[in-house]
């Protein structure tokens, strides 16, 4: 069997150079937090969340968290005199 040289270090350096890109990190840009429905249009995120959002993985999770922050900010603004 021909063996391969160790690749782990190379892989890590590649990760460092190429990404992950900033915009892809959780909680970054608003457009990344949109969740599209079957018709391709953004769906309204329920503030209580849903299993469907969690099942979308990290994108659904971040969209839900962003919605909670948005609602909390709005509530906080309302409370201000």
């Amino acid at each position: 069997m021909e063996t391969q040289p160790p690749c782990t270090d190379g892989y890590i350096s590649a990760m460092k150079q190429e990404g992950p890109k900033k915009k892809d990190q959780p909680g970054m840009r608003a457009e990344d937090l949109e969740v599209l429905g079957p018709d391709g249009k953004p769906i309204d995120i329920p503030v209580d969340g849903s299993l469907g959002l969690l099942a979308l993985g990290y994108k659904g999770l971040m969209a839900w968290r962003a919605k909670r922050i948005q609602v909390a900010k709005a509530a906080s603004a309302l409370r201000k005199p």
């Binding site: 990760m15 992950p20 959780p26 969690l54 099942a55 993985g57 994108k59």
Partner: peptide, 12 residues
């Protein structure tokens, strides 16, 4: 686990 997996699938 699913959130981590989906992130890795898209980014690594």
């Amino acid at each position: 686990v699913h959130a981590a997996a989906t992130w890795l699938m898209e980014h690594c």
